[in-house]
Design a protein around this nucleic acid. Structure first.
Lengths: 208, 208
DNA sequence: CAATTACCGACCAGAGTGGTCAATTCACAT
DNA sequence: ATGTGAATTGACCACTCTGGTCGGTAATTG
């Protein structure tokens, strides 16, 4: 069975290893990422890692599968379950992102890195999976959008672009702000309140 | 005299070396950047590089100085010479960025990388210079801002944030789109026209 | 012409690479 | 307590790449 040795581990230990690997790959990309760093940061031996995974490539592809699963289940598929307009969806997405972040702080950085990954060793396997993933994401966030709330004196597609860009940047900035804080000491209410204020401005400016 | 051997080179050759080094450092950061890659990509010998610069660190610090000079002279100090409102400044900044890009395509990526650089070998020297630089940049772009054009029913600071974030993202996206195209085949008029359309939307939404 | 400077690239010791494997520890059935 | 198979360890392997050196050659200068 695939990854049987790793799957058998208890959840806590699995997550430690996953987070160590996500962090290393996110920081350096596939080629420059070091398995030595991963085992050191995960607190396991070199032998253990290669007992769980056949090779560095195997580990990387497992991570891709894994994050795609997490993001699809815990993120994209939940976004539909709320208002059909863009800003409501983002509001919900922010909450969901916080939940995923608590368990896998580097997951989104890992995914971001995937989209600029150029190593030929994994390009073929990665390309199709990533393409499907991105398409799925945009479909859930932007597909079947209720556009009736937008003001009518501006092109909706450009307004949508600007909103998406601004909020992506807001998200990135929040991540940096959070930094390596322990999960407990992040004030989620304050974070959401602040985000809400920006959404209000966007509603006032881009909606009727 | 400092960097005398390098300064004496003719401009063309200097720029080739500078661009090769900017590209490598921007892509991998200080620690992982390889001087071997730089000399290969610049088309010079290892000996030559260490004839121009005493060490990798010396080269890196020269580059920092150099890009700070370029950006200050060709970018920040020119932004003031136009309308004092935020969107006019961004319009001008986009043109200026294009000019710098033609000569040093990776310069802005290099600077971006500086702000997340963590190598202890250079941290001390870098920190102060970078701080001064960023402050100078924001002062020129956001300082002494004409805020009279903003609508009065929204908090100006939040509107300004959203505009800055959206346009930063637009800039990053344009860069990616340009990718590694040769400078000649970039359609600057089309690029500016497109950018103008987005600025129009922002004016309509955030200004009176 | 000599003298000086610019430049080359083979070479160095050391660090780090992905991956292996004999040896040890562990969990657990008897 | 003991035997057994699986989980785990970390020293080790062959190899690549690192920043930097240096004896030599080519080009420039006076």
């Amino acid at each position: 069975m695939l990854y049987e040795n790793f799957i058998g581990l208890k959840e806590e230990k699995r997550d430690v290893i996953i987070n160590a690997a996500l962090t290393e790959f996110a920081a350096k990309g596939y080629d420059l990422a070091s398995t030595n760093e991963i085992v050191k940061s995960a607190g396991i031996s070199k032998g253990a890692l290669f007992h769980y995974f056949a090779s560095k490539k195997d580990l990387f592809l497992f991570l891709c599968d894994y994050v795609f699963g997490v993001v699809s289940r815990e993120f994209y598929e939940q976004i539909g379950h709320c208002g059909g307009d863009l800003l409501s969806r983002y509001q919900r997405a922010a909450m969901l992102k916080g939940a995923v972040y608590q368990r896998y702080p580097r997951l989104f950085e890992f995914i971001k890195r995937l989209s600029i990954e150029k190593s030929p060793d994994i390009a073929a396997e990665l390309a199709q999976q990533l393409g499907k993933m991105m398409a799925y994401g945009y479909e859930n966030l932007l597909g079947n959008l209720d556009e009736s709330l937008f003001r009518t004196d501006i092109p909706i597609d450009k307004a949508r672009d600007l909103i998406v860009w601004a909020l992506e940047n807001y998200g990135a900035r929040s991540m940096e702000l959070i930094g390596d804080k322990r999960v407990e000491e992040i004030n989620m209410e304050a974070l959401n309140a602040d985000f809400g204020k920006y959404l209000d401005v966007l509603r006032k400016c881009f909606y009727k």
